[in-house]
Amino acid sequence: MPIQYYIYLCLTLFSIGIIGVLTRRNAIIVFMCVELMLNAVNLLLVAFSKMHHGVALGSSATSMVGIEGQIFVFFIMVVAAAEVSVGLAIIVMMYRNTHSVDINFLNRLKN
């Protein structure tokens, strides 16, 4: 499978995530779209890792090249999990105070 396909796929998913961030007002949905972006990144990382691995296999059958990409994905997941816990806590706190998760509602701070 040519790497471009994966790149296009992931960029598309990534951009959909961005569009979601830009078009939705619900903080939770926005946050979910960020998660979508992260997943696009993860997929691309794995694809690249396999690509590099494939290239390296040509020279050495026991090559472990490319594993760092997958490890990175692991760390992204770790970070994402941590972020989610903090993020949801913040959103809940916000909701507690304002009974809303609308980000357009966040406009006390401006100018």
């Binding site: 926005v30 903090v86 913040i90 706190m93 916000m94 105070n97 701070l109």
Partner: peptide, 9 residues
């Protein structure tokens, strides 16, 4: 709250 959420997002 607002700052925190903005910053986080």
């Amino acid at each position: 709250n607002e700052a925190s959420l903005k910053y986080f997002l």
